[in-house]
Amino acid sequence: MLKAFESGADGVAIVRCNDGTCKYRGIAHRVNARVDRARKLISMLGIEAGRIEILSPVSGGNGNQYADVCADFTGRIKQMGLRNNKL
């Protein structure tokens, strides 16, 4: 996640299945914890924590739903604007 920001990304989406369709049972809290850590780290550099999000479609497997949640996310990033402090 940090590498993406280091490379100049404006936002990072962690795209996963939803809890119902995930191949691995009961790992959501672990994924969330890792993502929260990354959010805290970028915050320390003054980058908005909201630039990292976990995206998962409501009931996985349907291509359009993935497209929709990704479109929503890029919309939110656009609202935040480009990172002004790029490499």
Binding site: L2, K3, F5, E6, L41, M44, L45, G46, N85, K86, L87
Partner: peptide, 9 residues
């Protein structure tokens, strides 16, 4: 990684 980003900033 954080230091590289900070240096960039």
């Amino acid at each position: 990684a954080l230091l590289r980003m900070r240096a960039g900033q």
